[in-house]
């Protein structure tokens, strides 16, 4: 028997990826259908990223909100074991309630309880409408949560009716909000954000050593995520596609 036969894994931190999905009635049809299939298809890739990453493992938690808000699992589930259960859409848009629930779980006594510690989470919000509840109260509370403040936050505004100002407030920056107008775009962005937020969030950062500004400001993981979103928006290939090509088949 060799001395190295029994080595155990070097302790990894945990990075929780949160999907916060609007399942109000207006999401019904191809919107929620696209969200479901895009996330379902990208999960194996997230499992691979987690599996090959010696810095941190990735766990996933999903919160749906419509009339009220509901967690899909009682604890974050490791990416390898996570199964996406298809969401149905009906009801109103209680974003404020979603914020309160998120705030409650972003705590060392709730979801962020790993013995080996965590990296800041990545929180990914998708919505197509206007909050119907008193979102201000919930959002203000959430914005004081340190886990939330340090998190990578991205929001997708689905269609024209999404309230982009509220989403920008959630994500902390209008550049972290992505407008999509077709199912194809929606799918691409969901998968892009899921993968890149997972990769950036679950790796030891460069702690700002790469900033050219010479200042002492740390380039955060959120900054890097926003740069990636911007450069993806600029990517010619993504632009060349006709965002309206699916219009005929759409009803939203």
């Amino acid at each position: 028997m060799g001395l190295y036969d029994e080595t155990v894994e070097v302790p990894r931190r945990t990075m929780v990826l949160f999907f916060v999905v609007d399942t109000s009635g207006s999401m019904n049809g191809s919107k929620i259908g696209t969200v479901n299939s895009a996330i379902e298809d990208i999960i194996p890739e997230i499992a691979d990223i987690s599996d090959s990453n010696a810095d941190a493992q990735i766990k996933i938690a999903a919160l749906q909100f419509s009339t009220g808000a509901k967690w899909l699992d009682s604890q974050p589930v490791s990416a390898e074991n996570f199964v996406w259960n298809y969401l149905d859409a009906s009801g109103v848009t209680d974003l404020g309630e979603a914020c309160l629930q998120l705030n409650e779980k972003l705590s060392r006594t709730a979801f962020m309880n790993d013995a080996t510690g965590s990296f800041a989470p990545a929180i990914f919000l998708m919505s197509d409408g206007e909050p119907t509840d008193n979102y201000r109260y919930g959002l203000d509370k959430l914005k004081q949560n340190n886990w939330f403040r340090k998190a990578i936050k991205v929001a997708i505004a689905i269609g024209e009716d999404a309230n982009k100002n509220v989403l920008a407030e959630f994500a902390g920056n209008s550049e972290a909000v992505i407008d999509v107008t077709s199912p194809k775009e929606l799918r691409k962005w969901i998968q892009f954000v899921t993968v890149r937020a997972s990769e950036i969030g679950s790796k030891s950062s460069n702690a700002g050593s790469n900033s050219d500004s010479g200042s002492n400001e740390i380039e955060t993981k959120q900054d890097i995520m926003i740069q990636e979103i911007q450069s993806q928006k600029d990517d010619i290939e993504w632009k060349e596609e006709n965002p309206f090509e699916d219009d005929d088949s759409l009803q939203w």
């Binding site: 060392r108 510690g117 965590s118 886990w147 340090k150 950062s205 702690a207 740390i218 993981k221």
Partner: peptide
């Protein structure tokens, strides 16, 4: 508990 960029 949370290894932020500042703590890294």
């Amino acid at each position: 508990p949370c290894l932020t960029e500042e703590l890294e």
